[in-house]
């Protein structure tokens, strides 16, 4: 039948964007860092990532079956959540811990709050924090991190931790940029994460405001406090800042919809990250900064909502 004759209600012009198309782009953007992480830390880290992805898929599948809901595995968002969680775990995480984290991400943080689009914080970050609080012995501390490219598992502190230990070898800025350092599976190579980020921006999946303002705030703050460019580069390139700013802070559901809102969100994330790193007891603050700002998103959105042209103050309140 001729399409022009179809009678339907508005909207009449649709974009080809779909949830699984966007999620597929995110998976593509994460793959370089994931593959590199497996190469760097050995096959076991690949098993960690696979466990996360498979548990996420299985949890979502079973939840929908048990509660007789429409099957949502096909939108690929569970794969993205599992992949992000896997990339944010230390290379030696026990597989059952990874599975619990993935289960918590999908069931507790996403489905219990209403499924995709209703989660109040980013599922992968929420799960990482649940694991960090539940199993500090597996998630933090030097014994869980591996010296890169060594098949025998030599444990080593992450750069953010190493710098607290006097006399320990600190990787150079170049090593950090290309990811020749220890850390969580997917967070080491700033270069590959940036490549993924640029791909997402080029595909118009994300807008660059949040990553730029997030990383920019951390950079400016560390420059002000230390006065050295080298220190600034270390702050930007170490820890989960790149993966957090590019892939986790930009989650649609848990980031503001408006331009100014995104800017406030990014700056807020950057400030909290810097304050935790500089003054807190924890070696890393990216997860906590994103989760705290996630909770503020509805308020940021409300404060920065655009007023329709010509609407008076009194009317818009009513």
């Amino acid at each position: 039948m001729n399409d022009l004759l179809t009678v339907s209600s508005s909207p009449h012009i649709r974009h080809a964007d779909s949830t699984n198309g966007i999620m597929f782009d995110v998976i593509i953007a994460l793959l370089p860092a994931a593959v590199y992480g497996c190469f760097l830390f050995g096959l076991y880290s690949a098993a960690v990532i696979c466990t996360c992805v498979l548990t996420a898929l299985l949890s979502e599948f079973l939840w929908n079956i048990i509660l007789k809901k429409p099957q949502s595995v096909g939108d690929l968002s569970a794969i993205v959540t599992g992949l992000l969680l896997g990339l944010n775990l230390p290379p030696k995480t026990p597989l059952w811990v990874a599975a619990i984290g993935s289960f918590a991400a999908i069931i507790v943080i996403k489905q219990m709050f209403g499924g995709i689009g209703y989660n109040f914080v980013n599922p992968a970050i929420g799960a990482r924090i649940i694991l960090l609080v539940s199993f500090p012995s597996f998630l933090a501390g030097a014994s869980n991190f591996v010296e890169p490219i060594s098949l025998d598992t030599v444990t080593s502190a992450t750069p953010l931790e190493v710098r607290g230990i006097a006399g320990a070898a600190v990787p150079t800025v170049k090593e950090l940029f290309f990811g020749m350092n220890s850390g969580c599976i997917g967070e080491t190579s700033a270069f590959l994460l940036l490549v993924g980020g640029i791909y997402l921006v080029a595909r118009r999946v994300i807008k660059p405001i949040i990553p730029l303002s997030f990383i920019g705030t951390v950079a400016v703050m560390s420059l002000i406090f230390s006065g050295s460019i080298n220190e600034m580069l270390y702050q930007i390139l170490t820890g989960g800042l790149m993966i957090g700013a590019i892939f986790m802070a930009t989650d649609y559901t848990t980031s503001p919809a408006t331009k100014w809102g995104k800017l406030i969100f990014g700056i807020g994330c950057g400030l909290i990250t810097f304050v935790i790193r500089k003054f807190g007891n924890l070696p890393e603050g990216v997860s906590y900064s994103i989760i705290l700002m996630n909770i503020l998103v509805p308020h940021i959105d409300k404060l920065t909502a655009k007023k329709p042209f010509g609407v008076k103050e009194a009317e818009s309140n009513g």
Binding site: I100, I130, V133, S134, F135, P136, S137, F138
Partner: peptide, 9 residues
Amino acid sequence: ITPMIIFLL
């Protein structure tokens, strides 16, 4: 089995 400390918090 390592318990999940989060349940005590």
